[in-house]
Design a protein around this nucleic acid. Structure first.
Length: 535
RNA sequence: GGCGCGUUGGUCAAGGGGUUAAGACGCCUCCCUUUCACGGAGGAAUCACGGGUUCGAAUCCCGUACGUGCUACCA
């Protein structure tokens, strides 16, 4: 079976690839550059890669693309792996986990790339370029003032530039020998069409007249993304390359490199994923949008090592990894049924790259929270009580009785949207209310009610079985005796025990916190109400 | 500006020539609960626009508009 499914989707287009790949293993890669926090969109790219690999029994590889030394951020790589780990998307091979194609960090593979760049030069598919940044600027300035609609370094301009195409071989040699800084650029021939089948978008075609001579090897000897991605995908036997839509315009460069270097038969199948857009206005979702609109865009808290700015993560905000994965999966994909709640296993089973949308989706934090709510309700509290315990600790409440926390969590789980809600919804099970919703009590408060509560204290003390039903029975019969409406008393009792008019069934609360604590809280509240209402 | 990609309710979306155009989130109304939540019942779309093709188009084709991406010795 292996790659049968996906290849059958474009049988005519991929027949050749199909033939040569049908017995190969599916191997996909996520290739982040460690420049900061792991964005929503990044996690979704990981997810889709992972799902596809696991669906076809393949390998999921994480390759660190750290070819831009200037943009490296300390800690970013570790952070990426921490996020993947939290999400449960563990790589089969990576810079962290090792594997048969190590190293998985491009900076450590530096020496390997030059050979391919040189080979391209030798075969006439690339050339040395000695242009300085200033000269490049000047070129673009010139094009701009000439009214050109392209500012690219391409076949129109390359014969006016300082490169081995225009220079005499001897001149090039001299420059090379004298150590003049240079880059290697791909030589894109005009008037050709580059075609490939995108698994999401179908047949794609690009006119090479619009493709520029991209830098392949930088002056510092590092490859650019364009060279590195092709070389490493080849060396690591990547069968399917899924990445964000922002890469679509440079896809023809990659196809051309594949063609010149390794042959199209070896090339992975491409899929360009739609973007995740900001919820309000326009554009790709960015960290700033999260700050602005009040929701996270990173998987986990990211602390900038330089500025020490902290960007909130879904994890710390109280999201379950199950929910995070789920909401990301259905942002741009669905299985065609009405199902919306999917576990990772479900997703592996049902995911299909062909059903991924072409259009970008605006991120909706309200819906994201709904997914979390659903997962909190769905999962047994064992799955997340450790995290909830941490949240209580962070708030300065130490939970000594794990069984009690467990019990409380089951009582309130359906009213918790975020894990952090367990604290706000459940704190009164651990501490007496520090304040009361007096406005809720005041209109109902009178001398009769006061007498009633004074009386109920003694009755509670004598109650033998402290269980919700018996407490309720006693409470109600006592009210009937005194000819007071039970409803009004209940509201008051609730505020006495909880502090506000919220929470699960009242007598369950009384049972859970215990007789002694219930009586204590009534007495406490009596004092406060007495003072407040001056009766 | 050039090139690419996209466009079904506020949002996510099903749908692939004939449907009363699913469903979910959010919002509103009501029921349940004398709390809040959960749950339940309702309410809200001339499928961006204009032309074709067709007996018939949200669905196919062409334009236009709008959105978005790329346009670095960044990924």
């Amino acid at each position: 079976m292996l790659t049968l499914g996906p290849n059958f989707y474009f049988p005519a287009l991929c027949f050749q690839a199909y033939l040569c790949r049908m017995f190969d293993k599916v191997r996909v890669r996520f290739a982040p550059s460690p420049t900061g926090g792991l964005h929503l969109g990044g996690v979704r790219t990981v997810l889709f890669n992972y799902l596809y690999a696991k669906k076809y029994g393949g390998d999921f590889i994480v390759r660190i693309e750290d070819t831009d030394q200037a943009r490296l951020v300390a800690g970013a790589e570790k952070y990426i792996f921490d996020c993947l780990n939290w999400c449960g998307l563990v790589p089969d091979e990576s810079a962290l986990h090792g594997g048969p194609y190590a190293p998985y960090r491009q900076s450590e593979r530096k020496d390997g790339y030059r050979k391919y760049a040189e080979q391209l030069v030798k075969n006439g598919h690339a050339y040395y370029a000695f242009d300085t940044p200033a000269e490049l600027d000047a070129m673009r300035e010139k094009l701009k003032s000439a009214g050109s609609n392209s500012l690219q370094y391409d076949h129109h301009v390359r014969m006016n530039m300082n490169n081995s195409l225009r220079l005499l071989p001897a001149e090039t040699n001299t420059l090379l020998k004298s150590g003049t800084p240079y880059v290697i650029r791909i030589k894109v021939n005009p008037d050709e069409f580059v075609q490939f089948a995108d698994m999401i978008r179908g047949e794609m075609e690009f006119d090479t007249n619009n493709v520029d001579d991209k830098v392949l090897l930088k002056a510092d000897g590092m490859p650019t993304y364009h060279l590195a991605v092709v070389v490493d995908d080849y060396l690591m036997k990547i069968s399917h390359a899924f990445r964000g839509e922002e890469w679509l315009p440079s896809a023809p460069v990659h196809i051309l490199l594949w063609k010149c270097l390794f042959g199209l038969d070896e090339m992975p199948q491409w899929a360009h994923l739609p973007l995740i857009l900001k919820p309000d206005g326009n554009g790709k979702l960015s960290k700033r949008d999260g700050d602005r609109l009040g929701f996270p865009v990173y998987a986990m808290d990211w602390i900038d090592p330089v500025t020490h700015d902290i960007a909130k993560g879904f994890k710390e905000l109280g999201f379950l990894p199950e929910a995070f994965i789920n909401l990301l999966a259905v942002l741009g994909w669905n299985d065609g049924t009405e199902q919306e709640i999917f576990s990772l296993d479900d997703l592996v089973d049902k995911f299909s790259i062909e059903r991924v949308h072409k259009g970008g989706a605006k991120f909706d934090f309200e819906k994201a929270k709904w997914f979390n709510h659903e997962w909190i309700k769905k999962l047994d509290v064992e799955h997340y009580e450790k995290r909830v315990n941490e949240i209580f600790e962070e708030k300065g409440v130490s939970v000594t009785d794990a069984r009690y926390l467990h019990q409380v969590m089951n009582l309130i789980k359906e009213r918790c949207t975020l894990l952090t809600d367990f604290y706000t919804q459940g704190i009164f099970f651990f501490e007496s209310p520090k304040s009361f919703d007096e406005a809720a009590v005041k209109p109902k408060w009178d001398e009769g009610k006061k007498e009633y509560f004074i009386g109920i204290i003694c009755q509670f003390e004598e109650l033998v079985t402290w269980e919700a039903v018996s407490i309720e029975e006693l409470f109600k019969s006592s009210a009937t005796q005194k000819n007071i409406k039970v409803g009004e008393l209940q509201m008051i009792l609730r505020v006495m025990l909880v502090g506000s008019k919220t929470g699960p069934a009242l007598f369950i609360i009384a049972e859970t916190i215990g007789k002694e604590e219930t009586i204590k809280r009534i007495e406490n509240a009596l004092v406060v109400f007495n003072g407040a209402f001056n009766k």
